[in-house]
Every structure is written in structure tokens, then in C-alpha cells.
Simulated assay, not measured.
Amino acid sequence: MPWPDVFLSLLRLEAGYVSGPRLAKKAGISRSAVWKHIKILRRYGYAIQSRHGLGYKLVGQTDLPVPWELAKVLHTSFVGKHIVYRETIDSTQNLAISLASKPDSHGTVVIAEQQTSGRGRQDRKWLSPRGGIWLSVVLRPSIPTAKITLLPFVTGLAVYDTINTTGLDARLKWPNDVIISDKKVAGILLDISAQADQVNYAVIGIGINTNVDSSAISARLDGIKITSISGELGHTVNRLDLTRSLLENIERYYVEIEQRGVDTILQEWKKRSDILGRKVTVVQNNKMIQGVAADVNYDGSLLVQTDHGVINVVSGDIHVSY
């Protein structure tokens, strides 16, 4: 049991205040260490009152997705059974990739309260202040290499379902964004190591603008419309609950594609996306493709109907006319 959980259990045993000496004796630490532990727990989001002569009292729980709290509520078989948590990190994706080659890394999740060098597709900077959900999931898939490009679709469905539990109407935008009212609320990144007939590992990075100031992020991005869950709702949401839901949904959809194939995943993704049938402009290395988004192929590529025929689009920045 991690020390925060041990220490919190001591506070929860008492209805009122617990003295510093009693906490020190029960935890087997010094009285100065008790104060250090209290400060750390407050930083983790727990509300702890302190009164001279009485001691400490736990009066509020955290909503941060810390491992010891997730372990109590997470119902998965492998995703999140091992969680690495950092208050600050350069990138959860970088740390997850460094762990991915280990044989027992399948399902490992790396979570951070903030990232200093978070990245999106094409190595673009992903702004990740405190208040969001920033995490990476390590998978060692048994699915064929040809299907690995559909993992962002699996993840997109998981993010969609998670956000929509708040009552918002999120939609999926090809290839790996989640939007609300044409504004980006979440993004997905995939890093893989594969051979011709085998996937060594896949690391899925997920960033959800949860309880963050989206206007501050938008001000630092040129021409990209950004929103957040709290901004849309007008109040903050519980990130511990959302992270639990997200990890459970990832495992559910991952098992679906692993056991049943791509058909269901693609059909569900299409239902949750509003891109099909709309006019789109795809930008690829200063080249523009204009047409109508006709369908999504079995490898996840976008079929665009142009004046010159159907073009199979594998990557690019897409602009949708609503």
C-alpha cells in the first residue's frame, strides 16, 4: 500500500482531529515527517484542516487521478493495473515509451498533473497546464500490424464516451481529435514500434482539456479553436471519475478490436463523427485536397470525393465546413 493511502487511512479512522504525535506513532515516522506528509497530501488535492492542540482532520477528498485512489474505483483487467504518476513531467508519452519495451508493460498508464513539453501530432507542442487529463497508455497488441492504425479510433471512442458522461455533445474529428461545437477539447497521439508482421508496442497519448482555461491556451495557438469541459459546462468536473471512465472505456474498445476485428469500431466511430458528407479541405505539406468526406477506410484513412475522383487520405490537417 503506498504511503499516501496508509496515511489517509489513519486520518479516516478518526471522526475528529488526530494529533501529530498519534499520527507519527501510527505511521512509524517522526513528527516533522507528519507535517511534510500533510503538505504533500494537500498538494495532491486533499482538504486537511489543522488546529493547534488538536491535530489534523481530513475534510475533503481529492479529484486528482492519483494511483491509490484510481486503484479503489478502477474496474479493468489490465489497463491501469500499473500507474506511474508525476506532478510535473516533460511528456507522459516520453516516459511511457521508455517503459514500453518491458515484457510486463501491457496496460501501464503514465499520468501527469502537468506537462512542460507535451506533444501532439507531427511533434507539435501540446499545452498541458494543471487541471487537464494528460496520460499515456502502453499496449503490447496481439492485433495484426495492419490494424494498428485504428488504435486512435479505439481511443477516440473511449474519449467520446467519457466526455459525454458529463452531458456534453462531443463529436469525433478525423483523424484523432475530439471536438465540441467545432472547438477542440481533446487530442490523441499514437507512437508505435513494429516489424513487418508484429507490433512490439503501441503507446497512446491522450490530452483532455478538463478544468483548464481554454482561452489562455487559445491565445498561444494560432488559428486553432480550443475549448474545455469546464468551460462548456460552466463548472469544474471530477477528474478522478473521468479518468476511471476513460481507462475502462479504452480497455473495453481495445478488447473489441482485438477479439472481433475492425468492423464494429469503424461503425461506432462513424456514428460519433459528423465529418462524413461534409465539405473538407485537407492540407498536406502545402498541398490542398478539397472535396467531400465520403467514408473511412478499413485502415482508418479518409476517402475524399473530389472533382477528379476519390482520394485516399492517410494523414494531414483537415478543415471541415459546417
Rank of each mutant, 00 (worst) to 15 (best):
A194C: 06
D104E: 15
G167P: 02
D191W: 00
D123R: 12
V6Y: 13
T88K: 04
Y85I: 02
F78N: 00
L10M: 13
A293V: 09
R278M: 10
D263I: 05
I143R: 03
Q195K: 11
R12S: 13
D191A: 11
D263F: 06
A216P: 00
W3Q: 06
D104Y: 14
P65W: 08
G231I: 07
R31F: 02
H319E: 13
I48N: 12
L127D: 11
V313C: 06
T145F: 07
I163Q: 03
D263H: 10
L172K: 08
Y85N: 01
A196S: 12
E256Y: 06
V296L: 13
D317Q: 15
K57N: 12
R130I: 04
I224Q: 11
N249Y: 04
Y17N: 10
H52N: 02
P152M: 07
W134T: 00
L99Q: 13
V320M: 14
D104C: 02
R124D: 01
P4R: 12
L74C: 08
W174D: 08
A24H: 02
W174K: 10
S215R: 15
Q198W: 08
Q115I: 02
L247I: 08
P65R: 02
G291A: 07
V282K: 01
D197A: 09
I265H: 00
D90Q: 05
D299A: 05
T165R: 13
V280S: 04
P65I: 06
L276T: 09
R12Y: 12
L11M: 09
Y44G: 14
P65Q: 05
M1T: 10
K287W: 05
G156A: 02
L221I: 11
D161S: 00
S117F: 02
V137T: 04
R220P: 06
L135N: 04
D317W: 14
G28C: 10
H75G: 04
T210D: 01
V137W: 03
S193M: 10
E14G: 03
V280Q: 04
I29E: 12
K173C: 09
K271T: 02
I250K: 01
L303W: 12
T62K: 05
S273T: 10
K81N: 14
L276C: 10
N312Y: 01
K25L: 14
S228I: 02
K225H: 14
A33M: 14
H52Y: 11
S230C: 08
I208W: 07
H37Y: 15
G80F: 00
K81R: 15
S218L: 06
V280C: 04
R252G: 01
D177K: 07
G156F: 02
Y201N: 09
T243H: 11
R272V: 03
I48M: 11
K279Y: 00
A27R: 05
R51N: 02
V283I: 13
Y201I: 00
V320H: 12
V310S: 07
V262F: 08
P141M: 01
V320L: 14
G261E: 01
